[in-house]
Amino acid sequence: MDNILVAKEVSKHYGRHTALNKISLEIPENSIYGLLGPNGAGKTTLIRIINQITHPDSGEVLLAGQPLHPKHISMIGYLPEERGLYKSMKVGEQVLYLAQLKGLSKNDAKQRLKFWFDRLEIGDWWNRKVQELSKGMAQKIQFIVTVLHEPKLLIFDEPFSGFDPINANIIKDEILQLKQNGTSIIFSTHRMESVEELCEYIALIHKSEKILDGRLSDIKKAYKNNVYKVGLESGQGEMILRGLSNKFQIISSHYSKAERQLDFTIQLPSGDTRNILTQLAAKGNINNFVETIPSASDIFIQTVQGKNKV
């Protein structure tokens, strides 16, 4: 698969502060890519470089195989973290203006705006001033402005902050629809759990450096450590636990004699679960048996701690 965006050893310094240290990324076309890391890690700087708001001190960024060029601006849709609108301008005028800045002609912009306004059911806002809108309403407008010129690459910085759950879902669905239509999407956020389910690929950025990147499922496979959560219905919980702890490492456990319910977390030596399942099945009804897959933020913490140890 082709990459929509490739970053090669991109570095950026502000005075003595290093914002990005030789970051390399490959973002496959038509994927959802999560750029994850805590605040101040350098995500926004990287995004600004992709948007040509700032320029890297060294390194190179290729968009669709070509070094960044002003003409690429119209291929990118960017919803920044610090986003807003002209308060005293009317909604319609404002979106037309912003669309024209992205290179759309006035007529094209009008047609597409009509489509989007209908789709998000905000058609009657056209002549209202932005200052009359609620925050959620303004966010919808900003979303439309971001996607209106049908960019090949969409970049959302902290996409769901400020959205109420209903609007967040609407926008999420729209983004997935755009992906279906072939758009590549970058999510940048420090709230990793908010985008985890959407991302196919992630990169973890920490203190200006990339510490990990790749396909999310691969990363999870690599980071899973054969820990399982088990629920078992049995009146002999204590005995079962004692028997298991001889052979395996029990991480935590809870047994309620009255309810005949034993819950525990267990670390298995390998990914082979058949053996233990047969053993357990002989002792009682198994309510659940789930492999605990590490979340992106677990992986992040684990990686950061691992790095710090070295």
Binding site: N51, G84, L98
Partner: peptide, 18 residues
């Protein structure tokens, strides 16, 4: 200052040069 405080500035300069 208005563009800064209304936070529209970054949207704009992702389309045009500052």
């Amino acid at each position: 200052i208005e563009e800064k405080t209304s936070r529209i500035i970054e949207v704009i300069i992702s389309s045009v040069k500052p």
